[in-house]
């Protein structure tokens, strides 16, 4: 599985999420994540239909690159960990 993290420089919630993800990634070295800046990644924004809504957005992809889950806003660490474990094998 893979997690796409979409945030922006101007988004306070995105900055809040940075240390949370750092902790999760440290605790789960197998986890693959990629960060996309909202303003410098128009392709990703368009591909995942992120023109409107909330930031940050986290998209969980399975091993085939198919979206299995999406979250927006400030999410607590436990919820993220639950999802990471749930989709680990997918």
């Amino acid at each position: 599985m893979k997690v796409l993290k979409i945030g922006a420089l101007w988004c306070s919630g995105c900055l809040v999420m940075v240390p949370r993800w750092k902790e999760i990634e440290k605790e789960n070295p197998w986890l693959e994540t990629t960060y996309y800046d909202y303003d410098s990644s128009p392709q990703v924004v368009s591909e995942y239909g992120l023109e409107e809504g909330l930031l940050p957005t986290f998209i969980f992809l399975d091993k085939d690159g198919v979206e299995v889950h999406r979250l927006s806003g400030e999410v607590d660490k436990n919820t993220l960990l639950e999802l990471v474990n749930k989709y680990r094998e997918s």
Binding site: L9, W10, C11, S12, G13, C14, Y38, D39, L50, E51, E52, G53, L54, L55, P56, T57, S72, G73, E74
Partner: peptide, 17 residues
């Protein structure tokens, strides 16, 4: 409840940046 930031108008943001 999602506690995120609404995406603001792209043009305005780019201009200011």
């Amino acid at each position: 409840k999602d506690k995120g930031c609404q995406i603001i108008a792209n043009e305005k943001r780019q201009k200011v940046f």
